[in-house]
Amino acid sequence: MQIEIHGLVVVIHNICKDDRINLLSLLHINVNSFVIDSIKRRTKLTYSFKDEESVCITINSECDYVMLILHGSFFDNSPDFRLRKFLVFLSIFKHTFKQLDVAFNDDLNCLTLRELRHWVRNSKEYCTGSLVARNPPKYLTVERKFDAIQLGSARSTMNYGTIYRRPNTGFFRIEIKVKNKDKIGYILKKYSTKYPQQFHKRCLQLLDSCINFVTPSSKRRRVIEKQPSWEAFLGSDIKKIKWKAVHDAQRAHRQESESVSVAKKTQRLGSSLRNTVSRLSTILPEHEVLNLISEKSGYKLVKDDDI
């Protein structure tokens, strides 16, 4: 199996003009290659590859945030882009992941259309997972020929999936669109091209939680046994993930990061204030400097001689 990132949507908060330029350099796209559309305080930059939208950057100058959309065509045709380096850049800012597309390619031809069609048409017996828990998968055809298998709803705020044959390879491909920021953060935290094992493991945990093709007898017994060809496609035994534990860990991490950020910002502010008062005290008495700063800021400042 080949696993790849095939789409990413992220909002980056409080990003200044210089950092936006750095963002473009990480994408390895010349700014002159974008089509630019400006409306009031919003600027939209669109880059297309072979007439297909590949990158969309929406800049809101009033709120200093950027929404970045990287489509599949960008990942397919950007050999110089380094996702790991981009994720390090993101870590500098407060950011919110909106969607991650993960693709699983059956490059070893483990799956067959005959089996997939049988499993999907008898999903109550053969299918488990969050994407088929409420609604059965849909077997879609065009002119009576196989087109795709739809897993879940595209309107879902959590996950959505599609199984289809990729035209350029003929292999079956499963794409999962993840829309939960905690799940996206969990998966991308271990992204590495040099040591991909942990990243692949987390991607497979995602797939396993979304869709599984199992034997009817094991489903009745609730002791899941995967279909042999599906197990061969996965390539390894996957332990069921507890997403609640992931959500709790991500929430704790965010709270800790916010506390560290507040501590650093207040420390810098305190140092800056002491330095300012020290410089101005050569011109005015210190208490007058503090009174002037209080008037301008609206906060009463009193020196603590114990500090």
Results as ranks from 00 to 15, higher is better:
residue 32 N to I: 03
residue 270 G to V: 01
residue 153 S to G: 09
residue 127 C to E: 01
residue 255 Q to G: 11
residue 195 Y to F: 12
residue 161 G to S: 10
residue 206 L to F: 04
residue 214 V to I: 15
residue 63 C to I: 08
residue 270 G to H: 13
residue 170 G to N: 08
residue 123 S to H: 13
residue 131 L to H: 02
residue 110 C to H: 14
residue 204 L to C: 05
residue 198 Q to Y: 10
residue 88 V to K: 10
residue 97 F to R: 04
residue 276 T to K: 10
residue 60 N to M: 05
residue 47 Y to S: 00
residue 224 I to V: 08
residue 70 L to C: 08
residue 279 R to Q: 12
residue 192 S to V: 12
residue 261 S to Y: 07
residue 12 I to N: 02
residue 132 V to N: 02
residue 239 K to Q: 10
residue 132 V to I: 10
residue 290 L to Q: 05
residue 298 G to N: 06
residue 75 F to L: 06
residue 284 L to E: 11
residue 158 M to T: 13
residue 27 L to K: 02
residue 240 K to G: 01
residue 64 D to G: 06
residue 106 D to W: 07
residue 103 A to M: 12
residue 47 Y to A: 00
residue 109 N to C: 14
residue 136 P to A: 10
residue 117 R to V: 09
residue 301 L to K: 05
residue 216 P to M: 04
residue 148 A to R: 11
residue 69 I to E: 13
residue 82 R to N: 13
residue 206 L to W: 02
residue 149 I to P: 04
residue 49 F to T: 01
residue 135 N to V: 12
residue 249 A to E: 15
residue 1 M to A: 08
residue 291 N to P: 00
residue 289 V to M: 11
residue 16 C to G: 14
residue 124 K to D: 12
residue 119 W to K: 05
residue 146 F to E: 04
residue 238 I to R: 03
residue 291 N to V: 07
residue 271 S to A: 13
residue 157 T to G: 14
residue 101 D to K: 08
residue 191 Y to R: 09
residue 162 T to S: 08
residue 201 K to R: 12
residue 209 S to I: 00
